[in-house]
């Protein structure tokens, strides 16, 4: 055997073993970062739960720039990662281009819709969960004003606000919901100071309960609510623990379950579109030890009642994104 042959043989073996070792699932976090206390963190929790239970490994990466969406999708797919999960509608354009090039790789996109034969799109009925926390806000408030702080001014955030307003008005039809958005650029997702200022302004206008659907900005909202003696509602992950005593509840989106299920299914992920609402336990109002003192039995009953009616179809919560308008504003 010549040296060259030996070398080639070793290289070949290396390539083979590398390929086999890397047949694992992967998750890509959006620009907000892995530990954003919101949906990226939620997808990390789901992936980690899968890893803890199975003892296997997964690949992960955080985006630094928009140009990397396509790059990272391709890099992972090239290395044989399967399935590849990503959270965030911003991936839709890149995935639509990449997916056809890797017909044997399964992709899962959360919060976005991509119509390709190897892509599973998962979206949540956030308006339904928001309706429930709206009901709770209305019952917790002594007066008739509550408020909402959104992150970036986009239809998907109005979807939360509108459901919240509808839920509130189902209890207090003449009440007022103050809706504020933090900004129009992505920095609105990470501006806790401005979130706090908006909350103070809302308090001055009479708001007693504030619902934050604003990513990192929400941390400032929850903090200010605690300082100002208001009640606050968290979003995406269960944020009740962040300000115990003033957290009424959190509107939880089970992004973690989607990632966990996708990793568990592995290469058998079913492509297509699924919508997760109250009926599928995709969204919910979080109840735990941290908010037990604030949730009255009547509130609990009202939430269960509204939930049952929404699942049965007796109440249809308006989806803002369908017509970009909200009857409850």
């Amino acid at each position: 055997m010549t040296l060259m042959q030996k070398f080639l043989g070793t290289a070949g073996a290396l390539v083979l073993s590398a390929g086999a070792a890397l047949a694992e699932p992967a998750v890509i976090y959006d620009l907000g970062g892995k530990f954003d206390k919101s949906f990226n963190e939620s997808s990390y929790m789901g992936a980690q739960r899968w890893a803890d239970e199975t003892g296997e490994e997964f690949a992960e990466v955080e985006l630094q720039s928009d140009a990397q969406r396509e790059q990272f999708l391709r890099s992972f797919a090239d290395k044989g990662m399967n399935p590849i999960v990503m959270a965030g509608f911003s991936f839709a354009t890149a995935l639509d281009i990449v997916a056809p090039d890797f017909p044997d790789t399964k992709f899962v996109i959360i919060d976005g819709v991509v119509d390709q034969p190897n892509v599973k799109s998962v979206i949540f009925s956030e308006q339904e969960g928001s309706y429930l926390v709206g009901v709770m806000a209305a019952m917790a408030a002594t007066g008739d004003t509550v408020s909402f702080v959104g992150g970036m001014d986009i239809p998907s955030i109005h979807k939360f606000a509108c459901g919240y307003a509808e839920g509130f008005k189902s209890v207090k039809p003449d009440g007022k919901v103050i809706v504020n958005m933090t900004g129009t650029t992505p920095t609105a997702w990470n501006d806790p100071v401005k979130g706090g200022e908006l909350t103070k302004a809302q308090k001055a206008d009479g708001s007693e309960v504030v619902f934050a659907a604003a990513g990192g900005t929400g941390i400032g909202v929850l903090q200010t609510a605690a300082d100002e003696g208001m009640l606050a509602i968290g979003v995406d992950s269960n944020q009740n623990y962040m300000q115990p005593g003033t957290m009424l509840t959190s509107m939880v989106k089970r992004v973690d379950n989607v990632v966990y299920d996708a990793f568990t299914a592995g290469t058998d992920v079913e492509p297509g579109l699924i919508v997760l609402g109250l009926g599928e336990d995709g969204v919910s109002a979080a109840m735990d030890d941290y908010n037990a003192d604030l949730v009255t039995p009547e509130m609990m009953a009202a939430v269960e009642d509204a939930k049952a009616k929404i699942i049965a179809g007796e109440i249809v919560v308006h989806d803002y994104t369908t017509d970009v308008s909200c009857p409850a504003y």
């Binding site: 509608f89 911003s90 839709a92 986009i154 994104t321």
Partner: peptide, 13 residues
């Protein structure tokens, strides 16, 4: 977000 966006799309682009 207001003028150049594709109507109905989520991303501001």
């Amino acid at each position: 977000t207001r003028v150049l966006k594709v109507p109905g799309a989520m991303s501001s682009e």
